[in-house]
C-alpha cells in the first residue's frame, strides 16, 4: 500500500515538474489557476505548450512499460523486452517506410504491422527442432532482427531528401517534440483498449508464470494464451512507437523498477507498476531532454539511452555475479 502511494506521488510529481520546468518556468499556482479557470499563462501551458507532450509521454511510457512486463513475465527473463528483441525496431521501420512511401494510412497501423512481423520473424527463426523457443535464443535472434530493421531504416533514409531524412532520424531516435492532443489521445485511447484486453488475460499470465505443466494442469491452453499475451504485448509496444518512435530501454527498465517501488508480486500488480514506472521514466526523460541544454530540445530517446544503457550494463554485471546469465 505504501509502495502504491509512493508510485502515485512520484507520478504526480513528475507530471507537475514536467509541466512547470522548461525554457519558461511556470509555478504550480499558475497551473492550478489555468486548470480551473481556463485562462491565463497556466492554461496556455496546460492546453497548448506542454500538456500534449506530457500526455503523450505518459501514454507512451505506460504502454511500453506494460509491454516489457508481459514479455519479462512470459519468458521469465529480465532481458526479454520488445526493445531488446527488435519488435520496436520493426515497428519503427514500418512507420518510416509507410511515411516515406507516402501511403495515407494511420501510423499506428504501420507500427502494429511492423511490430507483429518482427515478432513473428523472431519466434519463427528462434524455434528449434523440438518446436520450442529457448529464451536466450529468442533474445539473440531478436537482437539480430533489430539489427536488420535498423539497417533497413537507414537504407530507406538514404533515399529521402535531406530535410525529411533529418526528421526521420530524429523520430527513429525517439522523440516527443511538437506533439499535439491528437497524439496524446491516440496513445491513451489505444493504450486503454489494450489494457482492458490485457486485464482479461491476467489470470492466464499468472498461471503461465507458474510453469507450463502446472498451467496446463489448471486448465490453461498454453500456446493459445501465450500467443494472445504476446500479441497484446507487441500491440502495446507498437502503440507507444507510433507516437514517440522506438524509444530505447523504457520497456526493459520499467517492470523491474516498478516492482521494486511497489513491492508487487502478483502479475496484475506488476503490470500496473510497470505502466506507472514506464510513465514516470518517460515523463522525466522528456523533461531532462528539454531542460538539459538551454535553448535546445534533445530527442527524448537520447536521454532514455543515457539512462538505460548503464542499467543494462548493471544488469549484465549483476546477472554475471549471481550466475543467471
Amino acid at each position: 500500500m505504501k509502495g502504491t502511494l509512493l508510485v502515485i506521488a512520484l507520478l504526480l510529481l513528475a507530471i507537475l515538474l514536467s509541466l512547470s520546468v522548461g525554457q519558461v518556468m511556470i509555478g504550480p499556482a499558475a497551473l492550478w489557476d489555468g486548470l480551473w479557470h481556463g485562462s491565463g499563462p497556466g492554461a496556455l501551458f496546460l492546453r497548448v505548450l506542454r500538456g500534449p507532450g506530457v500526455g503523450t509521454a505518459l501514454g507512451a511510457g505506460a504502454v511500453l512499460g506494460m509491454s516489457g512486463a508481459i514479455f519479462q513475465i512470459l519468458l521469465r527473463n529480465p532481458l526479454a523486452s520488445p526493445d531488446v528483441m527488435g519488435f520496436t525496431s520493426g515497428a519503427g521501420l514500418a512507420a518510416i517506410w509507410g511515411v516515406s512511401a507516402g501511403i495515407a494510412l494511420p501510423i499506428p497501423l504501420f507500427s502494429a504491422i511492423g511490430g507483429l512481423v518482427a515478432a513473428g520473424a523472431v519466434i519463427l527463426l528462434a524455434t528449434d527442432r523440438n518446436g520450442s523457443q529457448p529464451p536466450l535464443t529468442l533474445i539473440l535472434v531478436g537482437l539480430g532482427v533489430g539489427f536488420f530493421a535498423a539497417a533497413a531504416s537507414s537504407f530507406i533514409m538514404t533515399r529521402l531528401p535531406h530535410q525529411e531524412a533529418t526528421e526521420a532520424q530524429r523520430w527513429l531516435t525517439g522523440s516527443l517534440a511538437a506533439r499535439n492532443w491528437g497524439h496524446a489521445l491516440q496513445v491513451l485511447g489505444l493504450g486503454a483498449a489494450l489494457t482492458f484486453a490485457l486485464a482479461l488475460q491476467v489470470r492466464s499470465l499468472a498461471l503461465l508464470e507458474l510453469g507450463d505443466d502446472l498451467a496446463a494442469g489448471l486448465g490453461t491452453r498454453i500456446s493459445r494464451s501465450r500467443g494472445l499475451l504476446a500479441l497484446t504485448g507487441v500491440l502495446l509496444a507498437a502503440t507507444g512507437v507510433a507516437v514517440a518512435g522506438p524509444l530505447p530501454f523504457i520497456a526493459l527498465m520499467a517492470a523491474p523498477l516498478g516492482a521494486r517501488l511497489t513491492g508487487a508480486r502478483h502479475p496484475a500488480g506488476r503490470l500496473a507498476s510497470a505502466a506507472a514506472a514506464g510513465a514516470i521514466i518517460t515523463v522525466l526523460a522528456d523533461l531532462a531532454a528539454r531542460a538539459a541544454i538551454p535553448g535546445l530540445q534533445l530527442p527524448v530517446g537520447v536521454m532514455t539511452g543515457i539512462l538505460g544503457a548503464p542499467y543494462l550494463i548493471w544488469l549484465l554485471v549483476r546477472e554475471m555475479e549471481t550466475g543467471d546469465l
Partner: peptide, 27 residues
Amino acid sequence: TGPVRLTLAGIALNALLMSLVSAIVLT
C-alpha cells in the same frame, strides 16, 4: 564472454556512446 552477455554489453555500450554522440552533435 558468452554470446548473449558480450552482445548485450556491446549493445549497451553502443547505445550509451551513440546517445552521447547525438547529444553533442545536436549542440
